[in-house]
């Protein structure tokens, strides 16, 4: 596709807001996802991930802000967006009376870019029986079919909303394989939300952490892993310094031990912490993605409790 939108980022979101009734589920959200990147969207249940992804597809109306998906506003022309994007929702509602082959025949004419070879390849990779009805398929196979229907038209952007939730590890591997095959072949963008941190670490080169509709982190996954550290400081008199160091995500005191999770860690961080006095000793602990994620959420919830 060589249209004018080819150089623009895959997804641009500015100041997005969404309310359900009086409850604000997305608050001033901004995102910029470059083409060819894989964006992992992390957040606890009800954080606003699904709502954001639905807004990208034009399945909901937004209250405020700008959204451009592949250069197109989904609120203005959702059909164009849907033609160029592959989407797998959290729950599958494919017509249960359709056979696998019916579902393919139904979706095929909707996409100008449908690729029969890709479809056959995925059918084989996922070992789906074209003659079986959707209602006869196992949960894993229904997700596989949904992924096939979302990828056989060679989408420029693939959006997956917790597609792996509740599936066995073998099915997950098949699905990961299928997604990666599609990602490998051309410069395609992947946006997915998940609770499964290992999957996120495998797939994502960028990570966004969201809670209660607010984006807490947005950046490269390597930076997140390499520069988010937990400092374990010993407080001989059990009192924390009056001023917290910069970039604290979350902290808690247990006895004489003070655990501080910081972003943008450098050796300088330790020096600054000890310079204030009152701290005899500092350990630096590496964190994996799950711990980092939990500390971001805990930190935000503690902060909202205090204020």
């Amino acid at each position: 596709m060589t249209d004018s939108s080819a150089d623009s980022p895959a997804v641009v979101v500015e100041g997005l807001a969404k309310r359900f009734g009086r409850q604000e589920v997305i608050h001033d959200l901004s995102l910029n996802i470059a083409r060819g990147s894989a964006f992992g969207f992390l957040g606890p249940n009800g954080a606003g991930k699904t709502t954001t992804l639905k807004l990208l597809m034009g399945l909901l109306r937004r209250e405020a802000g700008n959204v451009r998906v592949l250069g197109v506003d989904p609120a203005v022309d959702d059909t164009t967006v849907k033609r160029r994007v592959g989407y797998v929702p959290e729950q599958q509602f494919i017509y249960r009376w359709m056979r696998v082959s019916d579902a393919i025949r139904f979706c095929r004419p909707l996409y100008p870019t449908w690729n029969d070879d890709r479809c056959a390849e995925l059918l084989k990779l996922f070992a789906l029986d074209p003659g079986k009805k959707v209602k006869e398929l196992s949960k894993g196979n229904v997700v596989k079919l949904a992924l096939l229907l979302a990828m056989a038209h060679e989408p420029e952007l693939l959006i997956l909303d917790e597609p792996m939730a509740g599936l066995d590890p073998l099915v997950r591997d098949d699905l990961l394989d299928g997604v990666l095959r599609t990602l490998c072949d051309r410069e395609r963008t992947l946006v997915f939300s998940s609770h499964a941190m290992p999957d996120v670490q495998r797939m994502a080169d960028r990570i966004g952490i969201i809670d209660e509709g607010v984006l807490l982190y947005d950046g490269p996954s390597d930076t997140l892993l390499n520069t988010t550290k937990r400092l374990r400081a010993v407080l001989p008199n059990g009192r924390t310094p009056d001023r917290l160091p910069d970039g604290v995500i979350c902290h808690r005191v247990s006895g004489r031990e003070w655990l501080i999770t910081v972003r943008d860690f450098t050796p300088e961080t330790v020096r600054k912490l000890t310079a204030a006095g009152g701290i005899t000793h500092v350990d630096v602990i590496d964190l994996n993605l799950e711990e980092i994620f939990k500390d971001y959420i805990r930190g935000r919830r503690a902060a909202t409790c205090e204020t």
């Binding site: 399945l59 059909t79 729950q91 509602f93 494919i94 979706c107 996409y111």
Partner: peptide
């Protein structure tokens, strides 16, 4: 009612 409209909603079918 049977929520299959949610499946159709992801497909590029002009409303």
């Amino acid at each position: 009612a049977d929520r299959t409209s949610q499946f159709a909603a992801y497909l590029p079918i002009p409303r």
